[in-house]
Design a protein around this nucleic acid. Structure first.
Lengths: 165, 165
DNA sequence: TATTGTTATACTCTATAACTATA
DNA sequence: TATAGTTATAGAGTATAACAATA
């Protein structure tokens, strides 16, 4: 039965196993792996909730309470977008950045163990290819992508601007 | 934000997208992609429900009603295992085999489109590596694997035996 | 006593729809 | 009028526990 070799089956096995291991590594963060992915995403970006939801592949109504819990835990903060007061920008707090730093190694180790059965070169190649395939799919689908990049650029500008203006 | 390049995120994007596309291709089968995967698994094998559940990475209580629906649709049949009358062996019906044959190309095409962004060589390499990683993980975890292989061998033997005995 | 599969139940996760506040 | 986010609610999917039949 293991000779049943379809792509969907393989992706399912890998993804479920990733979730199981990441769960163990990120149990201290609200919503575990998903909460961790949010922290990861917010490092170096301050996206709107809508863009964040699209990036994670989840519904915006789901994201609302996930972010609620991260805010309650003091790891994330919301800021009204000055350019559109309907929108909320999400940002890491200092505690969030510290938590991310503390968990990153453990998560990386669990990801490494996921591919431990493969020769190191193959594991690296798999990671590279999976990443490229995902980015192509995601950028193709996600009309927010450009807006997100613009958001990031705007935030960085803003951070630098006070000294210059 | 697309520069966020972790394995878990990539696997999630690919797996969700696989599900979405496979859903469209297998809408005529009960439980869509999962039902299709069962048909696929039963081609050339007659596993117990427990082994089938382990193979698909789902709970045995969930599998019960998925198989119920496939049986109701006439695609799968259950047979009491002669060697252990507690166990149910699952097998494709003729209609199930025909349905599988009819859908296989559509699913394969949707899988191909999933990786269409990559050069053909890379896509093939990705498929190969993902498959190998999944099999290693799965075989390592799944203590039923050997039993399943034995089951398959037994069934094949049985099919050949009448002429010889 | 342990295991296979089933059933009933409860729980989690996700999506739909309605609402607000902005645009 | 349309969009971002929130809330309430319903729905799908999943897991837990108890059970019957068999080992």
């Amino acid at each position: 039965m293991a000779e049943d070799l379809e792509l969907g089956w393989s992706l399912g096995v890998l993804f479920r196993e990733w979730q199981r291991r990441a769960q163990a590594a990120t149990a201290s963060v609200p919503h575990g792996p998903r909460g961790f992915q949010i922290l990861q995403t917010l490092e170096g970006a301050t996206p709107r909730q809508g863009a964040l939801a699209a990036h994670l592949g989840i519904d915006r109504t789901v994201l609302t309470y996930v972010v609620d819990d991260l805010v309650d835990a003091g790891l994330v903060e919301r800021r009204v977008d000055p350019s559109d007061r309907r929108a909320q920008l999400c940002a890491l707090t200092d505690a969030g950045a510290r938590t991310l730093a503390a968990l990153r190694d453990a998560v990386a180790a669990s990801e490494g163990a996921l591919l431990a059965g493969l020769p190191e070169r193959d594991a690296a190649e798999l990671e590279r290819l999976v990443r490229r395939a995902a980015i192509r799919l995601h950028v193709g689908d996600d009309r927010d992508a450009c807006r997100v990049v613009a958001d990031v650029a705007a935030v960085l500008d803003e951070a630098r601007a006070p000294a210059r203006r």
